[in-house]
Amino acid sequence: MTKQLYLKPRSAAEAAALLAEHRRAVIIGGGAYVRLGSRRIDVAVDLYDAGLDYVRRTPNGLELGAMATFRMLETAPELQDYADGILVRCVERIVGVQVRNITTVGGTLFGRYGFSNLITALLALDAEVALHHAGRMPLGDFLATKPDSCDLLTAVFLPDQVWRASWQDMTRTVNDYAVLNVAAARCGDQARVVVGARPGRGVRCPEAEAALLAGDADGAAEVAASTLEFGNDVRAGGDYRRELCRTLVARATAEVLA
């Protein structure tokens, strides 16, 4: 057995250097979904001390550090009213305070989890991500790429926009992961309708966005249900998800229009 290494860089730059040095290194973000014993990790790079755990206002909007936890999103004063608080709504019921204290923005986005509420909400708010090497890009573009384990996600940026927004999700028990989640947002002539946990990852539905712009909540619901793909998993069947999509998109868009 080779000696295992556990490294704790003090900055993003140091972390990036370690990743460059150790080709097989694995980044430890939250840790909630990484069971150290369950797969062989030779070099772990834990970002806990890298100074990325922040939520802050910038001249151009808001910035969430990659190590900002769900609990930080939930309690950050900057996020209580931003986009009608949907970044708070989308995380506040997930499992429990304990898990939300270790689940991070970066870990969630890097994991590209289908069940993720945060991805759905961020997509609806035109979030961008910053990668140490690849630079800044829209979240949607980042999600479409294959994970590059040598790069480091450092932050998420939210534009300085006044979104009217709504968060809707359905869970089996109150603190379960979503059976389906929906975020809708509108700002001027911009509209966003995102549906996730289908069980595939959150995606925008341009036809529903057009309906939302036209002020037609029921139309948005119909078109989202009929155009998006839904599948089966242990939480629910695809047919049910389609019906749920109809209901939740209708409720989300109606709330945005109200």
Binding site: T173, N175, D176, Y177, V234, R235
Partner: peptide, 14 residues
């Protein structure tokens, strides 16, 4: 349903 993430027992808000 081999873990407590997939097999859900009621939480206190339920």
């Amino acid at each position: 349903t081999g873990d407590m993430m997939t097999y859900r027992i009621p939480a206190r808000q339920d």
